[in-house]
Amino acid sequence: MQQILILYYSRHGHTRQMARLISRGVETVDGCEALLRTVPAVTSAEQSSSDISSEEASDPFVTLDELKGCDGLILGSPTRFGHMASPLKYFLETTSAIWMSGALAGKPAGVFTSTGTLHGGQEATLLSMMLPLLHHGMLITGLPYSETELIHTETGGTPYGPSHTAGSDNDKLMSESEKKLCIAQGKRIAGLSKQLAK
Rank of each mutant, 00 (worst) to 15 (best):
T94I: 00
M138Y: 07
I4V: 14
T115D: 12
M84S: 04
H164P: 04
G120W: 01
G69M: 02
A97W: 00
A34C: 11
L88K: 02
L92I: 00
T79E: 06
L104S: 10
A124S: 14
M84F: 03
R37K: 05
H119Y: 13
T125A: 06
R188E: 12
E149Q: 14
R11K: 15
E56V: 03
A184I: 06
I52C: 14
G110C: 12
T115C: 14
L192I: 13
H164V: 15
L67Y: 08
R16K: 12
V62E: 05
G156Q: 04
T165F: 02
T63A: 13
K194P: 05
H135K: 00
I6R: 02
A197Y: 15
L7W: 03
L75R: 05
Q195N: 08
G191S: 15
H135G: 01
A85Q: 09
A109L: 02
V26N: 04
G13T: 09
V62C: 12
S128D: 01
V111H: 00
G121H: 10
T153W: 13
S53Q: 10
T63K: 07
R37D: 04
I4P: 04
L5E: 09
S53C: 11
E147W: 12
R20H: 13
L139H: 06
L192F: 13
T148C: 08
G191K: 11
P60G: 14
L118H: 09
M174P: 10
G102R: 00
S48R: 10
K89F: 03
M129H: 07
A109Q: 02
H119D: 12
G25S: 02
D169G: 00
S101C: 05
I151E: 10
P159M: 14
L67Q: 09
G13A: 12
E93Q: 07
G76N: 11
D171V: 05
M100R: 15
S146A: 13
Y145E: 11
G13M: 11
L104W: 07
E123G: 12
F61K: 10
E178C: 07
K107R: 09
Q185A: 06
L35E: 04
L139T: 07
P108M: 09
